[in-house]
């Protein structure tokens, strides 16, 4: 487990560095295209910090199982939400989780005109506070619902050793510098009433 996290981290750092380099070399382009492109701030996502523990975004970027999620976060321009002081708990659907959605769903969401919907779907995966698997079990034990950043309240349930949020099983918790990444193998959808 340790080595996995470490390699995730290294991969993340590498990615970030290459991202930085390319953004520097392309400064001319950015400047010239600024007039037309909207300028969503990268905010703290542009901070270069190779000393602190990796944050949620860095962990996600470093995970080969979360390339769809990262692409979606970037398309939705919400990177800066995943790097601020938080604390934040992110339920991170794997690539396989996105693949379970009806065919074409992801491609449609990634289209520029659907940025708003995409951002809402992703934001539904974030809860203020730090909830790893142990903390989630406590939530279930105390009968407390999990408040998501979209305003949804999700039920937390336990079955044996497993913990479920809105019926979706949490596979693993990763501690990051600004909160928790909980790996899930399904996309969290709004509660069906």
């Amino acid at each position: 487990m340790k080595t996995t996290i470490y390699s995730l981290f290294v991969a993340g750092v590498l990615l970030i560095f290459s991202a930085c380099t390319s953004s520097e070399t392309q400064e001319g382009d950015t400047e010239s295209s600024n007039a037309t492109a909207d300028n969503t701030p990268l905010g703290q996502a542009s901070v270069v910090d190779n000393e602190s523990d990796p944050n949620i975004l860095q962990v996600a970027i470093g995970s080969p199982d979360h390339t769809t999620l990262v692409a979606a976060v970037q398309a939705a321009k919400i990177e800066h939400i995943l790097v601020n002081a938080g604390p934040l708990t992110v339920f991170a659907p794997t690539n396989a989780a996105f693949d379970k959605l009806p065919e074409g769903t992801v491609d449609t969401l990634l289209k520029p005109e659907n940025v708003g919907d995409l951002a809402t779907i992703l934001t539904r995966h974030a809860a203020p506070g730090s909830y790893n698997i142990e903390a989630l079990k406590k939530e279930a034990r105390k009968g407390r619902k999990l408040y998501m950043a979209t305003g949804d309240y999700f039920e937390v349930t336990v079955d044996g050793d497993d913990v479920f949020v809105n019926g979706v099983k949490v596979l693993a918790s990763i501690q990051t510098a600004n909160g928790i990444v909980n790996v899930v193998d399904e996309v969290l959808l709004p509660k069906s009433e």
């Binding site: 000393e51 002081a85 510098a177």
Partner: peptide
């Protein structure tokens, strides 16, 4: 009091 954070600037 110990600050358990290991993140820059917290």
């Amino acid at each position: 009091v110990t600050n358990l954070e290991q993140d820059y600037d917290v």
